[in-house]
């Protein structure tokens, strides 16, 4: 039947796209590893590091955003809306405040993950206590987000004396990125990819309801809990690297579903990851080349997170309006 052939072709086209993208990423990683500190410092330490960080963070946020949306059956959430990112930022700030070992990447990543987890737990508990609907999650998330954002802003004034770049953590930026982050981000991308492979089939059954998933042999509660937990923690971890970048995890899965014409979780998360990588790279490049470049009146570098919010927030509002009016995508 032609429908199936079309479907298979779509799978092949997008799998090829993902493979090409992964290949390019591997080439970039190879270049990155081989150039080392000895070569041109500008290219290695600033340009290549920044490009790779934007790609990897976008990939992680897009992919985990798709997993979060599917596991919660809620198209309005990502790690920013659920407050996970703010929880991570707050924990990192707190860590900077009390620790002299402020630049340990692994430790600050773990701290961010723990902070994200705490925030996620609060959001889920609050949302579930009022019925667990889509809007309940959004509203609970906004509350948790505001709480941790406010506390982080307060702490940032104190921590700024130790780390002048800390204010960037509140909006999300690659300006102060260090090459040492790249291997860590690659590990996190690999973990998100493994999570995607393991969860795509159970997520497809969860889409159609808990009872449906149960008769397909999956425990819906455990499956959902594990996927939300892992994608939340991974999403929060990247906060330690580049700060809080919102909306990439929200927008990318929608674009992926629109391009694919389906919600099949064997395709959506990986294409959402690619979309996230492209969007974040474009946003960062726009800030670096256009806003700080010679073309316009130079305003200097604007954090990528701010640019993402410029298109992400209206997108979020439009999805919410459509959702509340009861129209599908």
């Amino acid at each position: 039947m032609s429908v199936y052939r079309l479907y298979r072709r779509k799978i092949i086209v997008f799998t090829t796209m993902a493979a090409v993208f992964s290949f390019l990423l591997i080439v970039l990683s190879y270049l990155f590893l081989h150039m080392g500190y000895g070569s041109s410092k500008i290219i290695y330490q600033y340009r290549l590091t920044r490009i790779m960080a934007a790609i990897l963070v976008g990939l992680i946020l897009g992919l985990t955003g798709a997993l979060l949306q599917s596991s919660l059956r809620n198209p309005l959430v990502d790690h920013y809306i659920l407050g996970i990112g703010s929880g991570g930022v707050f924990a990192v700030m707190l860590f900077y405040l009390f620790s002299s070992n402020a630049y340990s990447l692994a430790i600050s990543t773990v701290i961010a993950a723990v902070g994200g987890l705490v925030a996620l737990t609060i959001t889920v508990m609050v949302a579930e206590s009022v019925g667990g609907g889509d809007i309940a999650y959004v509203l609970a998330g906004i509350g948790v987000n505001s709480m941790f954002s406010g506390a982080s802003l307060l702490l940032s004034y104190i921590v700024a004396s130790k780390n002048p770049y800390i204010a960037y953590a509140l909006v999300g930026s690659f300006i102060a990125i260090d090459p040492d982050w790249i291997p860590l981000l690659e590990v996190l991308s690999a973990i998100s990819f493994i999570l995607y492979i393991l969860s795509s089939k159970p997520l497809n059954t969860l889409l159609m309801g808990d009872e449906y998933a149960a008769q397909q042999g999956y425990n819906p509660r455990t499956t959902r809990l594990l996927i939300v937990l892992f994608s939340g923690v991974i999403g929060a971890s990247v906060v330690a690297c580049c700060g809080l970048i919102g909306f990439i995890g929200l927008v990318s899965p929608h674009i992926a579903r629109l391009m694919l014409g389906t919600s099949d979780n064997r395709l959506v998360p990986v294409i959402a990851g690619l979309t996230g990588a492209i969007l974040l790279l474009l946003s960062d490049n726009f800030s670096r080349l256009v806003l700080a470049g010679p073309f316009l009146v130079s305003v200097g570098e604007v954090p990528a997170g701010a640019i993402v919010s410029l298109f992400g927030a209206p997108f979020f509002i439009s999805i919410m309006i459509r959702r509340l009016k009861g129209h599908g995508a």
């Binding site: 159609m208 309801g209 599908g328 995508a329």
Partner: peptide, 15 residues
Amino acid sequence: LAYMGDISLPEMMGL
């Protein structure tokens, strides 16, 4: 076995 009751699919995540 197969069990089928109501299935509900969020509109924006249509299959």
